[in-house]
Structure formats: C-alpha cells, structure tokens
C-alpha cells in the first residue's frame, strides 16, 4: 500500500505575469512524489512559494510547465469539473486560518464537504460528521458556533472536516500558524494520528521546524526550488 503513488510532480514550474508585464517565477522545477501513508513536511520562509505548491498539489491551481500526475493520470489535462470531483473525494484541506464557514455549527461545518458527496456519504452526512467530530474529541461541541470555540478547537473542527470524506491526501497549510506552541503541537499530533489511522498521506506546509520535524520526510522550499531536508529532532 505504501508504494501506491498518489501525486507526482516532475519539473513543475509556476510563474505569474505581473502588471508591468514582467514574469514572476514562483516555483522552479519542482520534483516530488507522494504515496499513500506518506507524511511530508515542506518548510520555507514566507514568500518562497509554499502555498502555491500546496495549491498545485491540491488541484486548486495548475503548473505553468512540467508534469503533475494524480494516481498516474495527467492532472494538468483534467477538466475543472473532474478536478473538483477529485478534490471533493480524495483531498482534504486544513488551512492556517481554519476557514470554518461562518454562522454554521461545528457539526454543520463538518457536514459541509459531504453535501458534495453522493450516495450513502450524502444521506448519512450527519452520522459521519458526528463520528468525525467525536474522533477529534469534540463530540460534546457539535452545536457550538466557531466563534465560541478556542483556536485549537476550531482547528480540530477543520481537521474533522478535512477527514470526513476519508481522503487519500490531506494538505495542511500552516495548520499551527494561528495557534500557541502547546496547542499547535497537540493539533499536529492529532492530525498525524488521524492520517495514520486512515492511511491518508499528509503534506504539511510550515515555517515551523518543530512541526516539520514531526513528519517522516522533510523538504525545504527555497526560492522556488524544493530540496530534501534533514532535521535533528528537538522536543
């Protein structure tokens, strides 16, 4: 199972055209392979293209050049509709600012991705969402509004939401960025444990070396180039 390749990036570049018609190269020749069960951390300073890389990995954006494959299929040629279906079914996102839907309870937030599912997942959305929240320790806060939850609790709701459709890959963009050190660590442990249990790959984008150290593989993104990184784990 560990060898089942999910995402493969070969010589991926991403550049954007600036208002003065000059080109800004954000990513330069990125090569990365993600298989089921992987736990990868990508570290880098602000503005090095971490979020752009995550958007490409999450099929939210497309490379300017290079090859991106999703389970062996050329993802650069996927229609927007097909990409949306893959995103809904196989990819889960955890954002730095939690991005919970305002005005909805924790339960409704976790049910939200299941509104785009079909069959049993759609009709059993309340049960599945309740189970997901119970797994992250929020079984008693189902009807709580996001603003009544602490930062750590909000991020746990976001994790439950990312995992509720049992994705193959979870993409976490600075998941501890808005949390204190202790809460951040607890959230990362939860995310790690949840993905290990489900067998999903976890790709964490972070600028925090300690968070990156919790992954089994680390990469550094520097000036648009991805390089393997070896960390000495500190606690």
């Amino acid at each position: 199972m560990r060898d089942t390749q999910l995402l493969k990036l070969e010589s991926v570049t991403r550049s954007v055209l600036l208002p003065d018609d000059s080109e800004l190269h954000i990513l330069n020749g990125i090569n990365l392979s993600v298989s089921e069960g992987d736990h990868i951390a990508i570290v880098g300073r602000s503005g090095t293209g971490k979020s752009t890389l995550l958007n490409i990995l999450g099929l939210l954006d497309r490379p300017t050049t290079g090859h991106l494959a999703w389970r062996g299929i050329d993802a650069t040629k996927l229609s927007a509709r097909r990409a949306a279906h893959i995103r809904g079914r196989d990819l889960g996102f955890v954002f730095q600012q939690f991005n919970l839907l305002p005005g909805r309870t924790a339960l409704e937030n976790v049910m939200a991705p299941l509104m785009y599912a079909t069959g049993a997942d759609f009709w059993r959305r309340k049960t599945l969402a309740t189970e997901a929240l119970e797994k992250v320790g929020l079984g008693a806060r189902l009807d709580s509004m996001p603003q009544t939850l602490s930062g750590g609790e909000q991020q746990r709701v976001a994790i439950a939401r990312a995992l509720v459709r049992r994705p193959r890959v979870v993409l976490a963009d600075e998941p501890t960025g808005a949390l204190d050190v202790a809460t951040g660590r607890a959230v990362m442990e939860l995310l790690d444990a949840a993905t290990v249990e489900s067998g999903a790959a976890l790709i964490t984008i972070t600028h925090d070396i300690n968070v990156a150290a919790m992954a089994r593989e680390q990469f550094q993104l520097d000036e648009g180039t991805l390089k393997p990184l070896t960390l000495e784990v500190t606690s």
Binding site: G58, L60, A84, I86, R87, G88, F93, L101, P113, Y116
Partner: peptide, 16 residues
C-alpha cells in the same frame, strides 16, 4: 467570496 473558495476546496464544481 471566501466561503465560495472554501466550498470549491471541498469539491464544489462551478456549476454546483
């Protein structure tokens, strides 16, 4: 707009 973006990340298609 942000809410729409979040929903798109869940897999909402343009048509949906």
């Amino acid at each position: 707009i942000r809410e729409v973006g979040i929903r798109r990340s869940f897999g909402a298609t343009t048509g949906r």
